[in-house]
Amino acid sequence: MANYLLIESRDPFEYGDTRYMYNLAADLALKGNRVTLFLIQNGVLTTRTGVKDNPLDGLSEKGPAVTVLADEFSLRERGISQGSLVEGVEVSNVDSLVDMLAQADTKAVWH
C-alpha cells in the first residue's frame, strides 16, 4: 500500500482528459492505496455545487475512500465560496500540500 498525492491543476472544461486523474484516483484507492486528490488552480472549478457532468460525482461513487482537497487560494481567486462546495470536498492550502510532499513515502503526481 502506498500514499498517493495526485495534484490536479486542470479542469474538464478546458481539457478533455481530466477524468483520467479522477479515474486514476479511484482505481488506486480500490487497490488499497491511500489517495489524496488535491485540486489547485483551475482544478478547483469542479468544486462548485451545480457543475454539469462533474467528474467529482463519478469519483464519489467509484472511489469514496479518496480524500478530495481544494486549495483555499485557488477557490478565493475564482470567487468560489466555501459554502458552495460539492459535498465531500475539504478546503486545504499549499502549506498542507508541503506537509504531504515532505513525507518521503508519498508518491506525488502533478497533472
Binding site: 489547485i40 488552480q41 502549506d95 500540500l97 508541503v98 515532505a102
Partner: peptide, 18 residues
C-alpha cells in the same frame, strides 16, 4: 498559473524549514 503555484509551494516549504 503553474509558475506562481510552484513559487507559492517553495515559499511555504522554506517557511516550514525545508
Amino acid at each position: 498559473e503553474t509558475t506562481t503555484t510552484v513559487l507559492r509551494i517553495a515559499d511555504a516549504a522554506v517557511r516550514k524549514g525545508h
